[in-house]
Design a protein around this nucleic acid. Structure first.
Lengths: 216, 216
DNA sequence: ATGCTATGTTGCAGTTACTGCAACAGTTGT
DNA sequence: ACAACTGTTGCAGTAACTGCAACATAGCAT
C-alpha cells in the first residue's frame, strides 16, 4: 500500500520549493527516528518523500541537513546592539543573542522541532554538524562579547589589556557556544524534548553560579 | 624523482603496522597543510605514502582519522581516582583527567603533533570529528565529576539534591570538554602551535575566573 | 627443510553520498 | 503564442568506504 507516499491529487500539481523541502525533511526525521540515522539512506528518504535523489540534493546539501532542516543559528542583530551596551551578568542577554532560524525566517512547527531534536540527540555526527554550524557564528559572537567587555571594563575604570580582552572574549564565546549545545541536550544522550530544554534553560544561571564557584 | 615515495631498501622489506600507519599519517598531514584538507583525496594520500587505498583503510577508519592520527582522548584512571577524593578548585585537577593517547600509548613526536594541530585547526570537519571523540568520554567525565561533587558536598554538610547533582555535573563535564577544545585552539581559526596552547593552558584559570564572574 | 600461523598488503566489486549538466514540465506574465 | 521562471529529473561521474578472498613475508614449531 505504498505507505509513505501521500498521493494527494490526481492532476500532477506543481509543488513549491518549501513544500517539497518540508516533505523531505519530514520523511528524513521519521525514518531517522525509526531506524536510526546511520541506517537511513538518502534513497530511502527519497522513496518516502516521493522525489528523486537529485531533487533531494537540490533542496539539501547533505543528508544531515535534511534532518537539521536548513536551520542555521544566527545572531539577532537587534539583541546584539542592546547587549553590547547593557551591564550586569552576561549570560541572560547572551542566550538571547542566538536564534535558530530558517533562511527566510520561517517559524517552525514546535512539534516537528521536538521530533527533530529527538532525532538529533544521540547521533554524534548530527551533533557534530550542529557544532560546525555554531562555529560559523562563534567569530561574530566573540566580536560582540569583546565590545561589551571592553565598554564595561572602561566604564568601570579598569580597562582590560588587549590581550586579556582577546582571550576573555574568545573563551566566553566558546563557553556560550557550548552552553547552547548543552541547553538543547545534544550531548551524550540527554533528553531533547521541549520540557527538558526549558528546564535546563531555567536552571542554567543557578547551576552556572554553583559550578563556577567550584571550578576555580 | 617520484618525490614523495621513500624507497628505503631494495629488498622488499616488510613493514610493521606502526610504520605504515605513520607513513600514511605523515603523507596526510603534509598534503593537508599544502592543499587544505578538503582538496586532498584518499588516493592522493595513498600515492604519497606508497600504499594501496585498501591498505589505507586497513589502518584508518576515515580520511579524517589519518590526520587525527588514531589518537583518542582517554581518561587517566589514576588521575581520576585522585581527583574524586581531592578538594578545592576543580579545574586544575580536571584538566589532568584527559590524556590524548594512541591505542598503545605511543608517545608522539612533538613536531609532528604541532603540524597535526596546524592541519586540524581551521578545518571545521576535523574539529567536529575531534568533538565527536570528546563526546565519547564526556559521559565518563560526568560520572567522575558527579562522584567528586557528591563527596565534597556531603563532607561540607550541604549535600546536593540528586537532580542538582546531575545537572551540575553534566554542565561541568560539558564545560570542561569544551575547554579542552579551546585550549587546543581548534575553534574558529585560532593558533594551534605548542606555544599558543601552553599560553592558553597557563592563562586559563585566571581567564575563567574573570569570565565566569561576569557571566552570572 | 617443511609446513603452520600470524601479520600485512592488495585487487576487485559493490554501496552510499554527492556534483554538474542538460533536458523537460508546469506556471506566470506579455 | 511566446518567453522567462521555477522546480524536477536522469545520467554520468567522483570520492569515501566495506567485505571478501588471495597472496606475500616473517617467525615458529616440528
Amino acid at each position: 500500500m505504498s505507505e509513505g507516499e501521500v498521493t494527494v491529487a490526481e492532476t500532477t500539481r506543481r509543488m513549491s520549493a518549501k513544500q517539497t523541502a518540508a516533505r523531505i525533511e519530514l520523511a528524513a526525521i521519521d525514518l531517522a527516528l525509526e531506524h536510526g540515522f546511520g541506517a537511513v539512506t538518502v534513497d530511502m528518504i527519497c522513496a518516502q518523500a516521493g522525489v528523486s535523489q537529485r531533487t533531494f540534493f537540490n533542496h539539501f546539501r547533505t543528508k544531515e541537513a535534511a534532518i537539521l532542516g536548513n536551520l542555521h543559528p544566527v545572531i539577532d542583530q537587534r539583541a546584539a546592539r542592546e547587549f553590547v551596551l547593557a551591564t550586569g551578568p552576561l549570560l541572560p542577554g547572551a542566550l538571547m543573542l542566538v536564534r535558530l532560524s530558517g533562511e527566510d525566517g520561517t517559524p517552525d512547527d514546535p512539534k516537528l522541532m521536538a521530533r527533530r531534536f529527538r532525532a538529533i540527540s544521540g547521533e554524534p555526527s548530527l551533533v557534530a554538524k550542529q557544532m560546525e554550524e555554531l562555529a560559523h557564528i562563534e567569530g561574530e559572537l566573540v566580536e560582540i562579547l569583546s565590545t561589551r567587555l571592553r565598554l564595561e571594563s572602561e566604564r568601570a575604570g579598569t580597562p582590560l589589556s588587549p590581550e586579556a580582552l582577546e582571550r576573555q572574549s574568545a573563551l566566553c564565546g566558546h563557553i556560550l557556544g557550548s552552553l547552547m549545545l548543552y541547553i538543547n541536550g545534544f550531548q551524550h544522550g540527554r533528553e531533547s524534548d521541549p520540557a527538558a530544554i526549558a528546564a535546563r534553560m531555567r536552571e542554567l544561571p543557578t547551576d552556572i553560579g554553583a559550578v563556577l564557584g567550584k571550578l576555580v
